[in-house]
Write a protein that binds this DNA or RNA. Structure first.
Lengths: 196, 196
DNA sequence: CAATTAGACTAACGGTTGTTAGTTAACTCT
DNA sequence: AGAGTTAACTAACAACCGTTAGTCTAATTG
């Protein structure tokens, strides 16, 4: 432990996460990472097992966090619109808390080796749960009868890209952002709503 | 020219674009690329200048295509909603025509070297034009008075991610997709529209 | 205080990287 | 038919990759 309350291992992983966001997993070398934490490359291995292991730690912990959040939302009693708002808030919260890691989750998952299958399973389940929520909202005539896959894609890609954009809007607090974003995603932008 | 009507150089660039989509620019080696076009790595250099040059070709041509499309839309006489629908169609069309390239445009632009500034300038202008269209729609009370940056972000990230999702929906034709996606993005998904 | 440990270091490994040089065989054009 | 061009090849380059081995020093522990 140092004065900032984080271990060297944590410092290495956090620094790696930042570098991975900037250049992608493959373009970051262990010497890059070492220089960023002011030690030699070989010294990294006193704290971590491998480069691959860093990526695994970043991605799997995030993916499992999303999975836990979705479980809670899925099993709640809320109506569909509120479940969707809860999903928006879930993404906003996780992204605020780990902005850099979201880049790896989105762009570097294919470089997972042992854990690739596990990750893909988590993602598939997440998307299935998402679609089921939308479908039940359509059935209850709570949301419009549009293609549920298009709806999910539209919302989910926006939420997955939050990490790109959120750092530029540090003035917005997370409740406000989740509210505004939820409004736009759910109610659209059209003032008159001509196609109903 | 071969029987498929494409030069060897075009074949190399198209193959590279596919590989870049799957693993990212940095993780694709010239030997990977050579194997995929059934020649030796050194032979690639009879057709292309460098690995970097391939990336430049992919990204800059796409970015300039978007810029030209935006110029046309911007200078048209259409109302805001129709301009936004035209932007959706622009992305759908370019993405259908060059699905793989969109991955590099989204994820590998930071590996541009000489052309990085040029790319960033194009992107900045594009986003500014986009925001101006939204703002004039708000002023004309055509679209809701929400944060124009959030609106742009929400729409643009969805459109930028189309390449991830479009290949799975080959049954949908492009007009239908542009229509459905435009509906969802512009009119939202809420059946009742409670927050107006 | 002696013994252990944690965490940095240097040196080096086998492999891979993008790329160049030089060669050769097959086409194209006069 | 001869000259020139195209596009493949082998061989090799210097640099860089992730990682290991072994060493040294300062802090921690019994």
């Amino acid at each position: 432990m140092n004065t900032t309350g984080q271990t060297r291992k944590e410092e290495i992983i956090i620094t790696a996460t930042k570098l991975f966001k900037e250049k992608g997993y493959s373009a970051v070398t262990m010497r890059d990472l070492a220089k960023a934490v002011n030690i030699r490359a070989a010294s990294l291995y006193n704290h971590i097992d491998s480069k691959q292991d860093i990526l695994k730690t970043i991605i799997i912990s995030l993916a499992e966090e999303f999975t836990r959040g979705m479980e809670t939302i899925k099993s709640s009693e809320a109506v569909t619109i509120d479940k969707l708002r809860a999903i928006v808030a879930l993404h906003v919260n996780i992204t605020i808390q780990n902005t850099y890691g979201m880049a790896s989750l989105n762009n570097d998952w294919m470089h997972l080796e042992d854990q690739l299958e596990h990750y893909l399973a988590l993602r598939k389940t997440y998307e299935q749960d998402f679609i089921e929520i939308i479908q039940s909202g359509i059935d209850a005539q709570e949301i419009r009868n549009a293609n549920p896959e298009i709806i999910m894609f539209s919302i989910l890609t926006t939420l997955r890209s939050l990490y790109l954009w959120l750092p530029k809007k540090e003035d917005l607090n997370r409740q406000e952002l989740a509210k505004n974003l939820g409004d736009v995603l759910i109610n659209g932008i059209n003032h008159h709503r001509t196609t109903d």
